[in-house]
């Protein structure tokens, strides 16, 4: 598992395509939302590192995961496409270990550009404001609001192309990302804003920033939205429930993929 993790990490990190795709997504994003360049990142609370880092988390976690998912999507099936799978599958290292190793290595490497953008901006903030605590809030925000979603969508996008071609899967994934995570819930039936939303809103409003006025930015049941039973009012307990949901979904998806691979061998 360690060997696979290490090699997959390095191979993905050296992939030029990954860096190009991230650069394009980032360029489009900052062209549309200029607040990335303002010191308080659009939330207008001067010198308040926690709010600024949470705002940064929301920004980075909105679109960068689209590139993340798309770049993870071909990494499992490419072993078969390249013709390496035949050799790998006859080694004594089990398929399950390799799947986990690949998952960890690929996801870590693909998340690296997101971390680079996030922490790079956090460092600029900390230096400009003379607020080293911003780095602490940056780490907490990244770990608790962005990482759980990446853990889930990493599992989903790594294994999804076992069922359909990576290209079609990528299109479906982009549609899923906007429909299931970014769309306003009252617009149409969606899991956006629900416990299955991967953008980390429950962690932000339930645990890290519970003092936020729920009338300004509500997090919980949306007036007029369908599926509101999936949108409990944000609280620390619900924040951890969301975290558990993301991890459980990732484990379930990987377990199903393992079963699928084992069945294919018959």
């Amino acid at each position: 598992m360690i060997a696979t993790m290490r090699y997959e990490f390095h191979m993905q990190l050296r992939s030029r395509a990954m860096w190009v795709v991230y650069a394009l997504v980032f360029t489009v994003y900052v062209a549309v939302d200029r607040s990335f360049f303002t010191l308080y990142l659009g939330r207008g609370v001067e010198g308040e590192p926690k709010t600024a880092m949470l705002a940064l988390g929301t920004m980075v976690g909105a679109l960068m995961p689209v590139a993340y998912g798309c770049m993870v999507a071909d990494r499992l099936v490419r072993d078969t496409r390249l013709g390496v799978a035949g050799v790998l599958d006859t080694t004594p290292t089990g398929q399950g270990s390799r799947l986990i190793g690949k998952y960890l290595g690929v996801c870590a490497a693909t998340a690296a550009p997101i971390a680079l953008v996030f922490f790079g901006r956090a460092i600029v903030f900390a230096v400009a404001e003379g607020e080293p605590t911003a780095l602490g809030w940056a780490s907490t925000t990244f770990l608790l609001t962005i990482t759980p979603g990446l853990i889930f969508i990493g599992a989903l996008t790594l294994t999804g192309p076992l069922l359909i071609s990576p290209m079609i899967f990528r299109v479906l994934f982009v549609v899923y990302w906007f429909w299931g995570n970014l769309i306003y819930p009252a617009m149409m039936p969606t899991i956006s804003g629900s416990i299955f939303d991967a953008t980390g809103g429950y962690m932000e409003f339930g645990l890290l920033s519970p003092e936020r006025d729920p009338n300004v930015i509500p997090y919980g049941p949306y007036p007029g939205a369908a599926l509101n039973f999936l949108r409990p009012v944000a609280s620390p307990t619900v924040a951890f429930l969301w975290l558990g949901t993301m991890l459980a979904l990732a484990v379930a998806v990987l377990a199903l993929a393992r079963l699928h691979l084992a069945r294919k061998a018959t």
Binding site: R14, S15, R81, L82, G83, V84, G86, V87
Partner: peptide, 10 residues
């Protein structure tokens, strides 16, 4: 195997 493939960037 028949038609062995490799990782091109290694």
């Amino acid at each position: 195997p028949q038609n062995l493939g490799v990782y091109p960037d290694l």
